[in-house]
């Protein structure tokens, strides 16, 4: 699992916990992590995360049965989905806003980030701390979610299409599809193949884990179905409900790796500083020694400078390919059997 997760970015972790922001669908590059970090100070993120983990262990597969609010929305979804499914081929993945106000961030990896009730107040660029009630609410929300893994995506299916298919089973929050290797893509395009983006695997987060389970058990190893004429009618999808798995488990490892790397970097930097210091000290010492020697010489021109060797280094080897060079230098240049075979054939 770990290898697959590597592609996703650490940002989404923070994003998922703190920003549930519907109206001001803010955008950022995947590179400008620092911006995001400015907005969400690390410490706070860590604190919230810790709290979440504590609660997570207590009851993993608890069923939560308060879907009442969302039933209405689900109906609307289904209508939208039907539309989406029909004109799937016209849809642009890049900058597209879903029927119910979801926004896609195309971060080079095609990640869709959906909305859930906003718990963090980010008004005029200022964020407030979560109150304990809001935090509880947020934790509850996360506990309710369920994640499914898709080991195969029908060829060239766009995230938006997939979303519309899957949301037949319930409200979807986030969806991440891993694009195929760029080398494979370029090769295909070069030899006149399909220019569309292809995806190899993916993860989807349902707002309710009940939906996720239902979706996985229904769709797994089954035809997609839908309208008979649709492009994906006969395609088979593979899907598994990941029990006890949350979205931030996907991103957690990368966040951890980044932290480790950062720590390592600072350690190395301090080491380097020490090295630099020794260099500076040595330079000063050598100056001192040379002045002393100079003065001694001035006083007593006959005095021999005590330039005895303090330390000797093992020297790197010298080699040569020239025929005139010493035999030991060109030890590696002797023609071997294959080469002498070649030599006999040249003239």
């Amino acid at each position: 699992m770990s290898k697959r997760i590597t592609k996703t970015s650490a940002i989404h972790d923070k994003h998922s916990i703190i920003t549930r922001d519907t109206e001001s669908g803010f955008e950022y590059d995947s590179d400008s992590e620092s911006d995001v970090e400015n907005v969400f100070p690390n410490i706070r993120v860590q604190r919230i995360r810790d709290k979440l983990y504590q609660d997570e262990d207590e009851d993993e597969d608890e069923q939560v049965d308060d879907e009442d609010e969302e039933d209405e929305e689900d109906k609307e979804d289904e209508e939208d989905d039907a539309d989406n499914f029909e004109n799937e081929n016209e849809e642009e993945v890049d900058d597209y806003i879903d029927g119910d106000g979801m926004r896609n961030f195309d971060m080079g990896e095609s990640i869709e980030v959906g909305d859930v009730d906003s718990t963090s107040e980010r008004k005029n660029g200022k964020i407030k701390k979560l109150t304990s009630r809001q935090l509880q609410k947020e934790q509850k929300r996360i506990k309710r979610t369920g994640v499914c893994y898709l080991s195969r995506i029908p060829p060239y299916m766009k995230p938006a299409t997939l979303r519309s298919i899957l949301s037949r089973f319930g409200k979807i929050d986030r969806l991440f599809l891993k694009p195929e290797d760029s080398a494979i893509y370029h090769k295909r395009v070069k030899y006149g193949g399909n220019k569309k983006k292809n995806f190899t695997e993916g993860w989807v987060e349902f707002v309710n884990k009940k939906d996720a389970k239902m979706c996985a058990s229904t769709l797994n190893a089954n035809k997609l179905g839908g309208r008979k004429t649709s492009y994906y009618y006969d395609d088979v999808i593979n899907m598994k409900y990941l029990s006890g798995f949350k979205w931030f488990d996907l991103t957690q490892q990368i966040a951890k790796e980044n932290e480790v790397r950062q720590a390592k970097l600072s350690l190395e930097l301090s080491q380097q500083q020490k090295l630099n210091k020794t260099f500076v000290n040595n330079v000063e010492k050598s100056k001192l020694v040379s002045t002393i020697q100079r003065k001694r010489k001035e006083r007593d021109p006959e005095h021999e400078s005590d330039s005895h060797i303090r330390r000797s280094f093992k020297q790197r080897k010298v080699t040569s390919t020239r025929a005139d060079a010493d035999e030991e230098l060109k030890a590696r240049a002797q023609p071997d059997r294959k080469l002498s075979d070649v030599l006999s054939k040249v003239f």
Binding site: P335, D336, K338, L339
Partner: peptide, 14 residues
């Protein structure tokens, strides 16, 4: 070119 690192390839070419 006539060094051991190319020997095998050159042999095949010749």
């Amino acid at each position: 070119l006539l060094s051991n690192s190319f020997g095998g390839d050159l042999e095949r070419c010749f």
